[in-house]
Design a protein around this nucleic acid. Structure first.
Length: 424
DNA sequence: TCTGGGGTCCTAGGACCC
DNA sequence: TCTGGGGTCCTAGGACCC
């Protein structure tokens, strides 16, 4: 048995936690750059606000119903997430951290427990320790646990808990679930399935397996097997090392000068370097992309992307910034209104190995690893203690590209300065 | 005026090898 | 006139997830 614990309207719930006056009012959280709505409280959903709606299309609705609007505050959500996960880790022998607001728990050793009661306990405990409301779905496979969780969320009479442990229960749950709402079935698969009149999860479970294997490939075949109670997706107990790290942003205002793009690109490369050091990895490839708005029909469009290999694997901010900026010189075209840029580092190797990677430029590699390692360590230490950006590489500079964040809440749980501000 | 960010896995097809 | 068979590796792009 697997349990899937999923936080309700997670980002909206985090914002509400520290603002009890909003307990019963509609709350929405915006994407980066205050562009789209990416989280909604139940009250906001009831107003008909759809997931992913651009804010400018529903500004009037938000105003009319006095919806509380927040820019996204990832330090806050990340910290609340780890508190939820810590609580969950104490409630089952094995836990898989699936996303910022979801975890799978291994329930197979709970044979003698009343699982429904235990699921209720999980809900109570997380609520008590963190204030975050969650729903719990339990079933013999992960995909079915997802189905169960979804039912628990959508139907109030489940009171946040749904256990699918008998075949009649599973069958009726599948009949109630649309195929497109099954985990792993996206837009394209839905289109394909509907051509074959496969519209519910029950239809999908009963479809001819060879057809599913052929058209939905191995991923779809696993989904189908899981719906039929055959577990194909094991618990992933250890977080696997990242294969790539990306930092990208849409710009608050469009940018057309070489100088400003250089600042943005340096900042993104610098952030990638910090993430690399946190991950304990070094990168061998760097990709840069820059582009104009895909929505603006008036302006000329441009999308440029290029990948270069670095001389040796590195996590050094200066190396990565220099590399990114030199790629920018290749990609940059004058006369465009740039709206977005990003840096991806990939071909990651654990730093311990990276230091020993053979290089034609062994001296440079050695100098890089020894001296700059100390410098980077020092930089990270200072920024950890005195706040992000206390020291930075000079070319990392804010400009017109800086994303909008007009409704940002304080980092209530991760910044002393913000707490004092709240108190004051 | 205004439309997110960060990932993974899979497949097809090309390049290349003997 | 007629031009093999078997394999690996790499990459781009698609699909999906939250």
């Amino acid at each position: 048995m697997f349990a899937l614990v999923d936080c309700n309207n997670f980002y909206a719930s985090c914002e509400r936690l520290f603002n009890p006056a909003l307990r019963t009012s509609p709350v929405v959280v915006l994407s980066n750059n205050d562009g789209c709505i990416i989280a909604r409280s139940e009250e906001a959903k009831a107003l008909g606000i759809q997931m992913g709606t651009p804010v400018f299309k529903c500004r009037e609705l938000l105003r009319r119903h006095k919806v509380a609007v927040f820019s996204s505050n990832y330090p806050l959500y990340g910290d609340m997430s780890s508190r939820v996960m810590m609580t969950l880790a104490g409630l089952a022998p094995d836990i898989e951290l699936y996303s910022i607001d979801e975890a799978f728990l291994a329930m197979s050793s709970f044979g003698r427990y009343d699982l429904t009661e235990y699921a209720r306990l999980i809900r109570r405990r997380v609520r008590q320790h963190t204030g975050i409301p969650v729903c719990v779905g339990m079933a013999p496979t992960k995909t079915l646990a997802k189905v169960a969780n979804r039912l628990a969320k959508k139907n109030p009479h489940y009171q946040g808990v749904c256990l699918l442990d008998r075949s009649e229960l599973i069958a009726s749950a599948l009949a109630m679930t649309k195929a497109e709402d099954v985990w792993g079935i996206g837009r394209q698969s839905t289109k394909l399935l509907s051509l074959r009149n496969i519209t519910t999860a029950a239809d999908l479970a009963a479809a001819p397996a060879p057809w599913v294997r052929k058209h939905l490939h191995i991923t779809g075949a696993k989904v189908q097997a899981e719906l039929n109670g055959i577990s194909c997706l094991p618990m992933e107990l250890v977080r696997v090392a990242k294969q790539s790290i990306c930092t990208s942003r849409s710009f608050g205002k469009s940018v057309s000068t070489w100088e400003e793009l250089h600042q943005a690109v340096a900042t993104f490369a610098g952030k990638c370097a910090v993430k690399l050091r946190k991950e304990g990895a070094a990168a061998s490839l760097l990709t840069l992309f820059i582009g104009t708005s895909p929505f603006d029909d008036q302006q000329a469009r441009y999308w440029g992307t290029k990948t270069v290999s670095l001389q040796y694997p590195t996590q050094n901010s200066m190396m990565l910034i220099r590399a990114a900026q030199s790629v920018l010189d290749l990609l940059f075209r004058g006369g465009y209104a740039y709206k977005k840029a990003g840096v991806i580092v990939s071909e990651l190797s654990p730093l311990a190995l990276a230091g020993r990677t053979l290089s034609l430029f062994a001296d440079e590699a050695a100098a890089d690893s020894e001296q700059s390692k100390k410098l980077m360590l020092l930089m990270d230490g200072i920024n950890q203690r005195y706040g992000r950006g206390a020291v930075r590489i000079a070319s990392e500079n804010a400009g017109n590209w800086k994303p909008n964040q007009d409704c940002l809440s304080p980092c209530y749980t991760t910044r002393w300065g913000d707490i004092l501000e709240v108190k004051g």
